[in-house]
């Protein structure tokens, strides 16, 4: 009985700590991730528009969304890119989001 109890706790902990919904980021936090990082930069100067696109994942089992640069450009009508950033958030690997920020004109 004690063995079963221990095994159940071990399985639950392994599940919680395995970061089941991994998100693209340069730094990963096992419990909590909230990291902004660069993707690309161009030689174009000044930007007057910002566009975002995002994708989400739940438990690492379901993931959906369009986090492409193209979608972010389309959302704000950007035709000339200044630079691109990304923002990854994850909580215990249960719920993760990945956002792309495109700056341009």
């Amino acid at each position: 009985m004690r063995k079963i109890k221990f095994l159940t706790i071990a399985v639950v902990l392994a599940f919680l700590l395995s970061s089941c919904a991994m998100v693209k980021t340069p730094l990963v936090g096992m419990i909590y991730t909230d990291v902004k990082s660069p993707v690309a930069a161009t030689s174009n100067t000044n930007s007057s528009k910002v566009g975002t696109s995002s994708a989400t994942s739940v438990l690492g089992l379901f993931a959906s969304g369009d986090a492409s640069i193209d979608a972010a450009m389309k959302n704000s009508g950007i035709t000339k890119i200044h630079h691109v950033d990304e923002h990854a958030t994850s909580f215990l690997g249960i719920f993760s989001t990945y956002q792309v920020f495109v700056y341009g004109e």
Partner: peptide, 11 residues
């Protein structure tokens, strides 16, 4: 929010 400092003000 996000902010970007440029030669023509902050975006």
């Amino acid at each position: 929010y996000t902010s970007l400092r440029q030669s023509k003000g902050v975006l």
